[in-house]
Each structure stands twice: as C-alpha cells, then as structure tokens.
C-alpha cells in the first residue's frame, strides 16, 4: 500500500482508459475549435463518450439523449450523455466557453451559471436535470448590438478582475444578487459572492464593482 496521504483518486483503478481517449487527447484543442466554429455538435463523439461503445443505446426508461435546452433565451437541440455535466455541455457542445471549468468539484465558482434565477455550479449539475428551466451564461448578458451589460461595464470601470478567470462566475453571482436585492450592503454583496473563489485575491475590487453596478442599474 502506498502512503495514503499521497494517494491520488483513480491511481489504483485497474481500468484502462476508454478506447479512443488517448487519441482524442492530442486533438482536444482542434476538436474544441471545430465545435465552436461550426456550432454544430449534436453528433460529436470521442471526448465525452468515455465508457460508451458506439451505437450503444439507453436502457429502457432511461433518459433520451437528444434534448432541448433553453440557453440565453434560445432553444438549443443537443445530444447529452446521462453522465454529462452542464459545464461540459455548455463549453464543449454549445461553444459557450465563457463559463469556466476549474475545480470541477463545486469548490470554486468559476463555472457559475444562472438557472431559473438562481446561481448554480454548472460543473456539479447533470445537464439532464436542467429540463425546461432557463439557463443564463455570461454570453447571455450583452445587449442586442453587443454592448456590455451594465454589470460587466461596472466590473471594467472598477478594475474588478486581475487575471479574469473567475470573472464570469463573479458576474453571474452579481446578476442574481442585484435581481434579488438591488441595493445590497457591502456585507450582503460579500456573502452573495462568497461561493466564487478568486486565486488572484481581487475580492475588494470585485466588491467595489458590485457596489458601482448597484448604483448604475
């Protein structure tokens, strides 16, 4: 037995990587680019199909793979595996890469999206559980002519982000905060954004941004 403190989950799995996965790794970037360029992804295979032999259908009564998702006010048809998270669907099938994936464990908030008016970690939500509810991502905030949402503008004006990786999540949490509580105190804002980690530690700048956004909208 190895020293348990240095054990890494999955180390001892006897299972080999699913067929096709290693080949896929090298072409991951090309795959993502292709997906984004074409926007058409329903039939994409490979990456997410770990453990699925081609042509294998669902068991009786299990979910249908081809579903409709309401994302940023548009109905999108998409082929979703039973074990697929919303972050995966948004980023790798719908090309909405503004939603970030970092920890993939519900511990950072980079993947925060809004579902029916509440913040959710999209990395910790199975896409099939979304159903007919509406999903809003950072891409859904801009106006019809591409102008920034006032919250986005406030984040820029206050120099909120440092590296910017956590910013989409911070903004989505702010969207919900200001919908539910348009004039929050700084402490209420701190609490509302407490599920969004920032490795750069730009917390005070983000709070300045939230308070400015609350003034302008």
């Amino acid at each position: 037995m190895k020293d348990p403190t240095t054990y890494f989950p999955g180390d001892s799995l006897n299972e080999a990587d699913p067929p096709g996965l290693s080949a896929f790794r090298s072409s991951r970037r090309a795959f993502i680019k292709g997906v984004i360029a074409s926007g058409a992804v329903a039939a994409s295979s490979g990456y997410l199909l770990s453990g699925c032999a081609p042509g294998e259908g669902p068991a009786a009564g299990s979910v249908e793979r081809l579903i409709s998702l309401n994302v940023n006010g548009r109905i999108r048809r998409v082929d979703v595996l039973p074990n697929e998270t919303l972050a995966m669907t948004l980023r790798y099938k719908l090309g909405l890469t503004g939603t970030k994936l970092a920890c993939d464990r519900g511990e950072c908030g980079a993947c925060t999206v809004v579902i029916d008016g509440m913040t959710n970690y999209s990395c910790s939500t199975l896409t099939h559980t979304v159903g007919s509810r509406s999903v809003r991502t950072i891409e859904g905030l801009e106006g019809p002519d591409g102008e920034l949402h006032p919250i986005q503008q406030a984040f820029i004006d206050e120099l909120g982000p440092q590296c910017g990786f956590c910013t989409p999540g911070q903004i989505m949490s702010t969207v919900v905060l200001l919908e539910r509580n348009p004039k929050p105190t700084r402490d209420e804002a701190r609490r509302a954004l407490s599920g969004n980690l920032c490795r750069c530690g730009a917390y005070d700048h983000y709070l300045n941004s939230v308070m400015r956004a609350a003034e302008v909208i």
Partner: peptide, 13 residues
Amino acid sequence: MAKDMMTRFELYQ
C-alpha cells in the same frame, strides 16, 4: 482530465 470524467451510468427521472 480523464480522472474528472464520471464513468457511464444510465439516468432515470
């Protein structure tokens, strides 16, 4: 990344 992928399961609702 492979370690973050859930193994396959059927999903019932």
